[in-house]
Design a binder for these strands. Structure first.
Lengths: 337, 337
DNA sequence: TCCCTTGCTTTAATCGTTTAAAGTAATAGC
DNA sequence: GCTATTACTTTAAACGATTAAAGCAAGGGA
């Protein structure tokens, strides 16, 4: 069953290809196609089950109505959430999303970006991996419209949509202090990511602004290679210290899961002995014995802003937009009241 | 910065477009291109940062080297796992994956399939939604190569890669019986999906074959609209019965999460009072107080088989392949020993 | 009768590739 | 000196759509 093209319809009806194209693109009126022919063409298209070849159309129009999306890891809850939001938003704007997951690998990231560009996507939404500044700079030179999402590099001037990570961490820490906590630990990844550093900074500044003297052993920079081990060591340290911490703030959901697992295993009561706040929510929290207080990122807003910005770039060329969105602290029962 | 094409390289070097195409496609030898020109062309391509336009290439070759994948819901753990497996496998076979999520909606499913076909994917891997038999039949008529994954319809003769759901449920149930359980409840969705019915059947047959008389109130067909409520009611019933169940087998991870949540909340000890087995694993299990015994689907194998079958269909046309893969019972500590 | 509209339709170039076929110059063989 | 062969290179027709421009009748006005 071979593909039907405009040609087949044209032959079937007995008119030229151009006429068929006009009618099927809704230009029948404008191009003054006779009613009779218009009808016959529509009917034939239906009967023959015509499907326009988008590849040919794209080639001619120099536009694919496709945006490329590269997420960091499809297994992150953030990725699936943001992908959904972006797909919904893209659909509204009549774009299709071509999707890839870098799995946090720089090589894969580069490959994906190239593959997407070769497929002539009209623009890109990227969650960049660590140390991908050079690739981002290349992209800028190449002139392909793109927006960074979630992560960005302050030293590279590019459009981005991100969370106000500083404020989120600042607010969550302040909340813990207001609830009467005196010694608050912070677990983050050891990383060069700016957005994660911002979380550190927000935490530290909140302590300072509230007159709490920061102790070096409160801040743990976890190596992602041995997450469980590092967290175990960190929690043991802050709990067994002669001045033990009364709260732990985890900079990501993956860190929180490991932390809660440890607390579960050692029967450390939350929030009795230790209050807990997490950045982002994980499905895993559902089975923790109490709802976990956490920072929720506005995924729909982020997706919407990313698509809008990108479509703006595609249509009107030069736009410069750096957006920082606010997260929301969702209160559970994992903090002392 | 406008796009560089073969033409630009040709002009830059001072040769014809054809020569450039030959060299960049590795046909320099075969077409006996002079070493000098070959060198110059390669160098120019590098310098000008040439990126082949896959759209044009696809149009000419009538082949996009792209496969379309439609999953049921990107939020399912199964979906992300299988997507990863398929992407890895496709990459090996030099295909790109175009991806979409139907969110279990028939309309979205149809739209996605059409959008993918319009983009001239060479073939499709589909996790069909409920009642999509007509769409599948249409697809068969249209002649687009495709493979069903995970779910299929016995009344529609099509290629598929799925799990041996009957055997999986049969084996898990048998395991519970061998561990000494006498009254085993089974929670499934109320659905028309054949693969889920097979799970029921495996459960029922295992009981029968082991001489256990099935009681009607052991089997719960949960309405996905009120999952939590239905499961609560079911668990209450089987636990408060004058002959209470000593094991519960959940036909999906989503059902198991709801079940465990209820058990947690009401302090029902697992496996002391009730043994638990789940189909598939959820991230949520990580924070349950004991590892949950579950059936693990061979995602890599499934992805591999799906891609291999599809590529076979694309290349050699007619293949008929119905594959049922075996799951593995991963022992945790949620069953009485 | 001639020309100009009006109403409708076709022609043909184009998008960036691939590739069979034809072209061209230099060298070899007789 | 003529033809054949070799070693390259170019020409040009696709792929399936879009669309400006040209074509062609029929009817109206002078």
């Amino acid at each position: 069953m071979k593909k039907v093209g405009l040609k087949d319809i044209a032959e079937h009806v007995g008119v030229s290809i151009a006429l068929v194209s006009y009618v099927l693109n809704g230009q029948a009126e404008q191009k003054q196609v006779s009613k009779g022919n218009a009808e016959k063409i529509k009917k034939a298209a239906e009967e023959l089950n015509y499907r326009p070849n988008q590849i040919a159309k794209s080639l001619k129009m120099l536009k694919t109505h496709t945006i490329g999306l590269v997420v960091a890891d499809i297994n992150y809850r953030f990725s699936t959430g943001i992908t959904r939001a972006i797909e919904a938003e893209a659909k509204k704007a009549n774009y299709t999303v071509l999707f890839g997951s870098s799995n946090e690998s720089g090589d894969t990231f580069e490959e994906l970006v190239n593959a997407l560009i070769n497929r002539q996507v009209d623009g890109l939404i990227l969650v960049p991996v660590e140390n991908s500044q050079p690739q981002i700079r290349m992209l800028q030179k190449s002139g392909v419209p793109f927006v960074l999402l979630d992560r960005y590099f302050p030293e590279v001037q590019a459009n981005y949509i991100a969370l106000d990570n500083y404020k989120a961490a600042y607010d969550a820490t302040t909340y813990l202090i207001k609830q009467g906590h005196k010694r608050i630990a912070f677990f983050n990844y050891q990383t060069t990511f700016y957005h994660l550093h911002q979380r550190n900074q927000g935490y530290l500044d909140a302590l300072k602004d509230n007159g709490i003297e920061f102790k070096k052993h409160w801040l743990w920079q976890v190596n992602s290679g041995d997450r469980a081990g590092d967290i175990k060591f960190g929690l043991e340290t802050i709990l067994n210290h002669h001045e033990p911490c009364d709260a732990a703030f985890f900079a990501t959901d993956t860190l929180a899961i490991n932390g809660l697992k440890y607390l579960n295993k050692h029967n450390i009561n939350v929030p009795g002995q230790l209050s807990v706040i997490s950045f982002d929510e994980s499905e895993a929290f559902e089975l923790f014995y109490c709802p976990v207080t956490h920072l929720r990122q506005p995924l729909e807003q982020m997706g919407k802003a990313a698509v809008e910005t990108l479509v703006g770039l595609i249509d009107h060329d030069k736009i410069s937009r750096q957006v920082s969105l606010q997260s929301r602290l969702v209160l559970g029962k994992s903090c002392r009241e």
